[in-house]
């Protein structure tokens, strides 16, 4: 069985692991590195619970091989809070607006919403719903997730204007 040395930068830290070539990125994160925010919901590329930000793009970590991830820069929910330890605007908005119930989908949902707001800082409701269409939630009915993302978008653009 072929072993690969995989180097990545995850949430600002350089990491190196030695894994079987068939290892999926989600298993490197969860089992090798103890980064358990990204979840395995479906394992079939449908639910988005495993979503991470890879080289500035939202991707599903259950469908990326170790070798494909070599040399990339990754952000997960663990790297989302601000440098001073306060919650990122998206995290705060999900908390304040009941953007979660069981919380299983939340790490993927917030990491996806993070990239969506980078690409489109003022999305319409339709754009938000389409933008998170690769992330399923069994609990909330999406209403409060959409609301949380809208609140965070406003907050982030105010922060930007203040800077």
């Amino acid at each position: 069985m072929q072993k690969l040395d995989i180097k990545m930068n995850i949430n600002g830290a350089d990491v190196e692991v030695n894994v079987d070539s068939r290892t999926l990125l989600i298993h490197i994160l969860r089992e090798e590195l103890n980064i358990t925010g990204p979840h395995i919901g479906c394992d079939t590329t449908h639910c988005g619970a495993c979503t991470v930000d890879l080289d500035g793009k939202s991707v599903k970590a259950c469908t990326i091989f170790a070798g494909q991830a070599n040399g990339t820069t990754i952000k997960t929910i663990e790297g989302m809070a601000n440098a001073d330890g306060t919650l990122h605007a998206l995290q705060a908005a999900f908390k304040d607006n009941h953007g979660l119930q069981c919380g299983f989908c939340t790490p993927g949902m917030i990491v996806r919403a993070y990239r969506l707001l980078k690409e489109n800082p003022n999305p319409t409701e339709t754009e938000i719903r389409y933008g998170i269409s690769g992330n399923l939630c069994r609990c909330t009915g999406y209403q409060n997730i959409v609301k949380s993302i809208q609140v965070a978008a406003t907050e982030l653009s105010q922060q930007e204007a203040a800077e």
């Binding site: 590329t45 599903k60 933008g131």
Partner: peptide, 9 residues
């Protein structure tokens, strides 16, 4: 085709 994450890859 599929969803935003899948279209990125």
């Amino acid at each position: 085709i599929a969803d935003p994450q899948i279209r990125n890859v």
